[in-house]
Nucleic acid binder design. Sequence first.
DNA 1: CCTCGATAGTTGCAATTGAAACTATACTCG
DNA 2: CGAGTATAGTTTCAATTGCAACTATCGAGG
Lengths: 155, 155
Amino acid sequence: MSPAEALALGAFLPYRLSVLASRMSRELSLLYAERYGIAIPEWRVIAVLGQHEDVSADFVCVKTDMDKVTVSRAVARLLEKKLLLRRASSTDRRRSMLRLSSAGRRVYADIVPLARSYERRLLNALDHEARAALERALGALETQLGIGASDPAAP
Amino acid sequence: MSPAEALALGAFLPYRLSVLASRMSRELSLLYAERYGIAIPEWRVIAVLGQHEDVSADFVCVKTDMDKVTVSRAVARLLEKKLLLRRASSTDRRRSMLRLSSAGRRVYADIVPLARSYERRLLNALDHEARAALERALGALETQLGIGASDPAAP
DNA sequence: CCTCGATAGTTGCAATTGAAACTATACTCG
DNA sequence: CGAGTATAGTTTCAATTGCAACTATCGAGG
């Protein structure tokens, strides 16, 4: 009630990031969702596999910070759509190795420029120095939260 | 596939913010969810009403960037829990004016310090200058996305 | 003033989500 | 080796979510 103890939501970091992030994810998904019929978790799986070939679903979980259930289902849908290939790991039969099919690579190649240009548009609001500062700040916050700390190559 | 065209997810702004934000919201909710039996949308409604008395649900939507359905249901749950008071606006009977009950204000007063100290812990990762830079960068991104642009006093 | 389009808020319904339980496989230690 | 524990991934189930349709009220133009 009294202004002294009121929390200014508009200046509260977790809240601000939450609003920014959900706005961005939503706007970004407009660029690919309908056109390619893929949802946000599916795009994230594709994005990881575009960078890393032959990784496990678990690796995707770590990389995207998504729940393993979410990943499992996204993978299932992508398999149905033939955008992904899965084969059992030869060394560990619990694990499966995932990679994009050629159709999946095409989708990835289509979406990446859209994603990049969306990001560019966002970053246009910042001058070079501000960008670098944002970069550093995000890195520090990620470290603080233990995000991206482990980068197990490609198990 | 080729590194030249691969999108580095770990350096992609929308993705980084998304991971940071969901991590923060989750950790923060651990501080109040069980203890007070309130979910994230409910906390957000409380947070707005802690700042602004006698505002409409619609105002809460704008402030929190939440869907009006989400807000409607959060309000309903908070009314059940007697943390909120609602009365019809005298000038516009579609609108209702919301405010925290005294129990609601107690919950708010309890949670605010927890939220602040969580934020402080996060920001400890940043020196003063980095904090200011982050501040500016977030402001610029918000402007770019048209967030918080409208601040209709307290309709 | 009365109809028509806009707005506040709620409800129905279908899809998404995650916690917990389950299956199957791998690793460890006695 | 064999029992017990850990891990990868899937399934089940209940809760959350959001779009779309609905109700109620408001305000503007004929």
